[in-house]
Design a protein around this nucleic acid. Sequence first.
DNA 1: GCGACAG
DNA 2: ATCTTGTCGC
Length: 229
Amino acid sequence: MAYYRPPGPPPDPILVSQLTAQQQELRQRLRHEPLPQEPRLIGGCDSSFPTPDTILSVFVVLEFPSLQLVEKVYNYGPVDMPYVPGFLSFREAPNVIHAFAKLQHKPDVIMVDGHGIAHPRRMGIAAHLGVLLDMPTFGVAKQKLTGKFTEPAPEKGHIEPLTDAKTGELIGQVIRSKDKVLPLFVSPGHRCDQATATRLTLACLKGYKLPEPTRLADHWAEEFKREVR
DNA sequence: GCGACAG
DNA sequence: ATCTTGTCGC
């Protein structure tokens, strides 16, 4: 089980095996189900790196379905873990959780910037955060990590399944969120199902490629970054 | 054996 | 993710 390694220090195989074991434990607590009720508040989170060893995570909360911003917070701290494909959550989740703790208004569901179960071991950062926060979550990623799919039609609204190339299992949906722009990869995280993840993603589109929770989290991550520099 | 690889 | 100018298409 070897992973691609971007430029930088080589990942310690022992560390990788320990992280894999941790993902397995968290995976046992994963649950996929529809939301108990229609959300009143939806959260969005994203992280940026002001410097190579510091991380700034943002959490925004929007009213649903009006999509009006009701709160935005961030947490800034050091980062120890390097980025290793498949283990992104161990690098970003700790700081994202600290940001979540600062929220005055807790959301009913969280849209995470990254994959849910559309992951080699079905434990993308959205699933990982969902279990640790014990909150409904789903992921919206801009790039594929694993799985196969056929290109959705170029018009907004077209959807294609993202499946495990080996088992054929449905692990997400590829959605064209805007005419002629690269599609989004949506998958459930924890306490959420595919239909809900896709429905909420579509309901949060406002003419841009990215749905509002992620788009605003992205925006404020950039804004707060200048603030800490 | 050769690709592919979230943020 | 981050570093960066000009450029293509609607």
